[in-house]
């Protein structure tokens, strides 16, 4: 079913919306949740929570892109669940590894004051990403939005892992410069 029809079902408060969403996007959402949580049951629960959240927010929200809208919900729910479960321990996991890599963009003494700053940061990241060449932008997003392992990104883009690592390193460096330029750090 086309996304516009699924959204209509949400607006009509028709529970078929959940079924159609599940049919079309279950696997997409599951792949995002599994990357973050690395556990089948937790991933499935997050995907189910995604449908419930979508049901609660559409309407009033009207997604421009249903896949991105759902993916974003899944990502947020999965990260929250992951952080709740891993407050005390750290390990060799993509979410943590990606955090370590992102730490290169931020000096240790900096802090984000409030929600407003968080929104500013989102807007800045959005602008920053749009200025990047498409390939560089999407390698960055596969790593830090979708939490793909380096090996998967290399395969997906048809490059060696070292090239992907180098691309990510350069993008992080550019991001650091951008944050500095905008006086966010």
């Amino acid at each position: 079913m086309e996304d516009s029809n699924i959204i209509t079902l949400f607006f009509n408060r028709d529970e078929q919306a959940i079924l159609e969403t599940q049919k079309k996007y279950e696997k997409y959402c599951y792949s995002i949740a599994y990357r973050v949580l690395n556990n089948r049951e937790d991933a499935e629960e997050c995907v189910n929570d995604t449908y419930l959240t979508a049901w609660n927010v559409i309407p009033p929200q009207f997604p421009k892109s249903l896949s991105a809208f759902l993916g974003r919900i899944t990502r947020n729910l999965s990260l929250k669940r992951y952080r709740d479960a891993h407050r005390q321990k750290r390990g060799e996991h993509t979410v943590l590894l990606s955090l370590d890599e992102l730490a290169e963009c931020i000096p240790a003494s900096q802090t984000l004051q409030n929600e407003m700053q968080q929104k500013e940061l989102s807007a800045l990241l959005d602008t920053f990403l749009r200025m990047l060449p498409p390939e560089e932008r999407n390698v960055f997003l596969r790593r830090y939005w979708y939490f793909d392992p380096i090996s998967e990104i290399a395969k997906r883009f048809g490059y060696g892992e070292s090239k992907i690592k180098m691309m990510l390193f350069r993008t992080r460096k550019k991001l650091y410069e951008k944050l500095k330029q905008e006086e966010l750090i």
């Binding site: 809208f69 963009c105 968080q118 749009r130 999407n138 997003l141 830090y144």
Partner: peptide, 27 residues
């Protein structure tokens, strides 16, 4: 203090078109 999690969180709110593009890009 600004933490890496802040960037991770802020990335969650970027434009939907960018998320969609990355879902299909490459493959």
């Amino acid at each position: 203090m600004m933490k890496p999690e802040d960037i991770q969180n802020a990335l969650g709110d970027i434009g939907e078109d960018l998320i969609e593009e990355a879902a299909n890009f490459g493959n």
